[in-house]
């Protein structure tokens, strides 16, 4: 019961807090003071009460797509074990997870193209190309732990119940790395897309929501934060499974490590975004290929342990 309450509090607070933390660290690294830690909360609240401007060419799909996207993100955050507690909705398996993410993307693209804006359409087509590159690696990174545990249900895969075999940590480490790279692409972060610019040559995610304003934009921002939490959480959980032999079995300590891990990943991301330059669009596949390679390594090691 207590864990449920803690889990709910985490769901409510952590996504936007992570965003704020990310921006704060990034500002510090760039010698700026930066917005306060709670700025994303203020942003969402403010946007929620603003007037929304809709395109005259938009159909119902524009706002419905954004809403459905938000609902899918909420569903995922409730059913994916991104913390060490068992999620509220049980029984989500990895193919459903992948296809739900695909569904969110589908409606994202449709609502970006719905207004007939060339910007949204441009980024929509790029998003489709990125998704086709990144989906195989996401599946492989999640399949490898599944092959270890003999189950493809997410809550069983991430339940700290692997017998510690000599190869297992390698599987989890590769999966964790692969998921982190995948997260960078899925969330359109730095080497692939720059979240800070609104320059039409670079953007993917920002241009998709270019027509959104007011409540729609608030929903977009919030679902983005939810997705960020989800991916970072999964990556951290994979890492914690890798080192589970050295972890104390206390649930609360593991929770502490999970949260710390997510903040650590946010800090790493902030550092990467300060140091790296954005890749040229045609060079992005070279970068994304590393995620697939990590997934392949994870699967190979998982299969190697079986013989």
């Amino acid at each position: 019961m207590v864990s449920y309450i803690v889990y709910s509090i985490m769901i409510l607070i952590l996504p936007l807090l992570l965003m704020g933390f990310l921006q704060k660290i990034k500002a510090k690294l760039q010698n700026r003071i930066g917005a306060p830690l709670l700025q994303p909360f203020f942003n969402v609240l403010k946007l929620w009460n603003k007037t929304q401007i809709l395109s005259e060419d938009a159909s119902f799909l524009f706002r419905f797509g954004i809403l459905l996207n938000f609902c899918i993100a909420t569903y995922l955050i409730l059913s994916v074990p991104w913390l060490n507690f068992s999620p509220m909705i049980m029984g989500l398996d990895l193919f459903l997870l992948v296809y739900l993410l695909a569904a969110a993307r589908f409606f994202n693209i449709l609502s970006a193209l719905d207004t007939g804006s060339p910007f949204g359409a441009f980024s929509g087509s790029r998003e489709a190309a990125l998704s086709f590159l990144v989906e195989p690696s996401l599946v492989l990174c999640l399949l490898a732990p599944g092959l270890l545990i003999n189950s493809n249900v997410m809550s069983e895969m991430f339940a700290f119940k692997t017998a510690v075999n000599s190869d297992n940590p390698a599987v989890w480490i590769f999966a964790s790395l692969g998921l982190f790279i995948t997260a960078l692409v899925e969330l359109s972060r730095m080497p692939v897309d720059d979240p800070n610019t609104h320059l039409e040559l670079t953007m993917v995610h920002e241009a998709m929501i270019i027509e959104a304003s007011g409540r729609n934009l608030a929903l977009c921002e919030y679902s983005y934060a939810l997705k960020l939490t989800l991916f970072f959480g999964l990556s951290v959980q994979c890492f914690l499974h890798a080192v589970s032999a050295f972890l104390p079995s206390n649930e609360w300590l593991t929770l502490f490590f999970s949260v710390i891990g997510m903040f650590f990943l946010a800090a790493v991301l902030a550092m990467l975004e300060t140091v790296l330059v954005k890749l040229k669009w045609t060079k992005c596949p070279d970068f994304i290929a590393y995620a697939l390679t990590m997934g392949m390594f994870a699967c190979i090691v998982a299969l190697r342990g079986r013989t």
Binding site: D286, A289, L292, T293, M296, F297, I300, R304
Partner: peptide
């Protein structure tokens, strides 16, 4: 051969070596 594909091919070569 593009570099990413060459990398995936060399993963397959790793399996072959195994």
């Amino acid at each position: 051969l593009p570099h990413p594909l060459a990398m995936h091919l060399s993963v397959l070569l790793l399996i072959f070596a195994q």
